[in-house]
Computed example of a mutant assay.
Amino acid sequence: MVSPVPVGPPVAAPVAWGPAVVVSADMTGGPTGFEPYILDTADKLRVFVYGQPNLSRLYTVDQVGNIAIPLIGTVRARGRTTVDLTHAIAAKLGREFVKDPQVTVDVAQNRPFFILGEVRLPGQYPFVSGMTIEQAVAIGGGYTERASKRTYRITRKLGPLVDQIEAPGDYPLCPGDTVFVYERFF
């Protein structure tokens, strides 16, 4: 007697996600300063459209990842570079409103970074280009008396993924990073 053969695609077992894995900064590399800046929520952008003063102004990337520009409506900014966004705005304007639009987009203010844990003034602060973890701690009011000064945890959003790494004090930060200062155990 022959047993029946199942018909249809195989059914995959459900995937159980475990706890987040924290890796050392030397394994992931880290920002070198040569990566293109990827736009995200809370970035303030300066958009200049030549010959169109009503369109040329500061725009803030909203929670959904868009900017709202008069005449053309919302334009997706999250996940794009300033060059990509320049081309998207020019294309939308050029379709109906402006003949051969000359558009420039640059970052007027980066999104903030966050510092938590054993610092005197945890919270959200404006990002400064070239900042390291130790400089972020100084901005956060310095260490508390219980702070560990050996390693720190950085949480960084990379597109749809969130990466957590342990890094030394001289590790460079990116806009939107969250730095956690550990408590020492002695």
Rank of each mutant, 00 (worst) to 15 (best):
M1P: 12
V2M: 11
V2G: 12
P4M: 09
P4C: 15
P6M: 11
V7E: 13
G8S: 08
P9M: 14
P9D: 14
V11E: 15
V11I: 15
A13S: 14
A16E: 06
A16P: 00
G18A: 15
P19W: 06
V22S: 07
S24L: 12
S24K: 11
A25N: 03
A25T: 00
M27A: 14
G29P: 03
P31D: 14
P31R: 12
T32W: 10
T32I: 08
F34S: 09
E35R: 03
P36T: 04
L39N: 01
D40P: 03
D40M: 05
T41L: 13
L45I: 03
R46K: 12
V47W: 00
F48W: 05
G51S: 12
P53W: 04
P53N: 10
P53R: 09
P53S: 10
L55Y: 00
R57F: 04
T60R: 00
V61G: 09
D62S: 07
D62I: 02
Q63F: 11
Q63P: 09
Q63G: 14
V64E: 13
N66S: 11
I67N: 02
A68E: 14
A68P: 08
I69Y: 03
I69H: 02
I69E: 01
I69R: 02
P70W: 03
P70I: 02
G73D: 04
V75Y: 01
A77N: 00
R78P: 05
T82V: 06
V83W: 06
L85M: 13
L85K: 09
T86Y: 03
H87R: 10
H87G: 01
A88R: 11
I89N: 01
I89Q: 00
I89S: 01
K92L: 12
K92W: 05
L93N: 00
L93I: 02
G94T: 00
R95N: 07
R95F: 04
F97A: 01
F97Q: 00
K99H: 13
D100P: 04
T104P: 04
V105T: 06
A108Y: 03
N110P: 12
R111E: 01
I115F: 07
L116S: 02
E118C: 01
V119I: 07
V119G: 01
R120G: 15
L121Q: 15
L121H: 11
F127P: 01
F127N: 01
F127A: 04
V128W: 04
V128S: 06
V128Q: 13
S129Y: 11
M131P: 07
T132G: 08
I133H: 03
I133F: 05
E134M: 08
E134V: 11
Q135T: 03
Q135M: 06
I139Y: 07
I139C: 06
G140V: 01
G141P: 04
R146Q: 09
A147I: 06
K149D: 07
K149Q: 15
T155P: 14
R156T: 08
R156W: 09
R156H: 15
K157G: 03
G159E: 12
P160Q: 12
V162L: 08
V162W: 10
V162G: 06
D163S: 04
D163W: 06
D163F: 05
D163G: 06
E166P: 06
A167F: 00
P168C: 10
G169H: 10
D170R: 08
Y171I: 01
Y171Q: 00
P172Y: 07
P172D: 07
P175N: 13
G176K: 02
T178I: 08
T178H: 05
V179L: 07
R184G: 05
R184Q: 14
R184T: 05
F185H: 02
